[in-house]
Nucleic acid binder design. Sequence first.
DNA 1: TAGATTGTTAATCGATTAACAATC
DNA 2: TAGATTGTTAATCGATTAACAATC
Lengths: 236, 236
Amino acid sequence: MERIDKVKGTFDKRMVDIEKNPVSVAVIRRLPRYHRYLGDLLREGKLRISSAELSRIMGVTASQIRQDFNCFGGFGQQGYGYNVKYLHSKIGELLGMKEGYRAVIVGVGNLGKALAATHMFERRGVNVIALFDNDERVIGTEFNGFSVYDVKTLGDFCRENNIHIGVLTVPKESAYECALVMADAGVRGIWNFANMELSLKEKNVVVQNVHMGDSLMTLCFGMKTGGEKGIFDDQV
Amino acid sequence: MERIDKVKGTFDKRMVDIEKNPVSVAVIRRLPRYHRYLGDLLREGKLRISSAELSRIMGVTASQIRQDFNCFGGFGQQGYGYNVKYLHSKIGELLGMKEGYRAVIVGVGNLGKALAATHMFERRGVNVIALFDNDERVIGTEFNGFSVYDVKTLGDFCRENNIHIGVLTVPKESAYECALVMADAGVRGIWNFANMELSLKEKNVVVQNVHMGDSLMTLCFGMKTGGEKGIFDDQV
DNA sequence: TAGATTGTTAATCGATTAACAATC
DNA sequence: TAGATTGTTAATCGATTAACAATC
C-alpha cells in the first residue's frame, strides 16, 4: 500500500504504523476492554485465541479486532491466531501500565476513600503514593495504609515525589485550583471526578473528566425507551 | 424530504422523528452533556442561546448541535435560537429525569456510600429508597438518612416498593446474583459498578456497566502518547 | 422588511465490515 | 502440503460537517 511502500527500508512497519498512522480515538477507547477480556482469558489458562473466537466472546466483529490490533503492528500470527499472554502484555504496555506512574488522591471523602480502597490502581501499574485533604480531622491520619496530608503541601509533595497523576475527588469549587497546583508541580495527568469539565491543555496536562451522572442518565434513557438500543456500555 | 412527505398528514413531524428515525447512540451519548451545559447556562440566568454560541462554549460544531436537537423535533426557533429553559427541560425529559424512577443501592462499601452521599440521584430525578448489604454490622443502621437492609430481603423489597433501578456496588462475585434477584423482582435497569460486564437482555433489563479502570487506562494512554489526541472526556 | 438563525439536505469524512491474498 | 487465520485492501455504512432554503 502506498504509504508503507514509500518508507520501506527506512522504518519497519510498526514504526510507520505508530508514527504515521495516528490511531483513532475509537480504537484507543476499545483497548482497555480488550485488555480486560484478555486478562480473563489469561487467568482461565487460555494460551491462544483467534479473532473469530474473541469476537464471539466480546460481541464485536472479528474484522474490527484484527483492524484494531493491527494499528499497532502485527500482534498475531497467520494460521495460529494471537498469543493471549503476549497480546495482553502488549496492550497493557500501550496503555501505559508499565510506565510506573505515581499518583496522589486529592479529597478523602467517600469517593476518595472508595478509590483508595480498591486495587484499581495497582492492578493497572499505577502506584498511589499519598492522600490529601483540607480537613483537620483527617490530616495526619491513615487510610488503608496511605497517609493523609494537608492539601496545602500538595504542590511541594508532587514536586519532591515525582507525581505523575492527580486524582481529584474534591468538591467542584476547589477542583480547578488543585489541578493548577499539581500541573505547576509537574503532574502530567488529572483524573477528575469533580462534576465539571477541566481543561489544562495550555499546561500540556492530559485530563480525563469523569461524569458518573451522565452514565446514570444514559441508563434512564435506555429504560425509558425500552432498551431497544441495546446496552450502552460506557467506559469508566 | 421523502420520508416525511410520505407520512405528512398522518403523523406530525415530531412523531415521525421519534418513531421512524431511530436516534443513534452517538447522539444519545451527547444528551447528558448538553443537559449539563444548559443547566449551567440556566443558573447563569441565560434565557436564549444560538447553536453558534453553544458551539463555542461546548467545543463542538454548531451543525452537530442543530442536527442533534432536531432528532427529537424542533426545539428551536428560526432567527431566535433556543430557549435555554425549554431546551434544558426537554432534554431532561428525553433522558427520563421526569419518570420518577426509584432506586436501591446494593453494597454499602465505600463506593456505595459515596454514591448515597452525593446529590447525583435527586438532581437527576431518581429517588434512592434504600440501601442493602450482607454485613451484619451495617444491616439495620442508617447512612445519610437511608436505612440499610439485609440483602436477603432485596427481592421482596423491590417488588413491594416498585423499584426501577438497582445500583450494584457489590463485589464482582455477587453482582450477577443480585442483578438476577432484582430483575425477577421487576427492576428494569441496573447500574453496575462491579468490574464485570453484566447482561440481562433475556430479562429485558437495561444494564449500564461502569468501568472506572478503563477511564484510568485511557488517561495513562493519553499521558504516554503526550496527549496529542486531546482530552478523552468520558461519560460516567 | 432585513437580519438572524434554525431545520434540513447534500457533501465529506471516518469508521466498520467484508473479502481475500499472504503466510504461518 | 493443506488448513487456518492473520494482515490488509476495498466496499459499505454511518456520522459529521457544510451549505442554504425556510422562516421567525
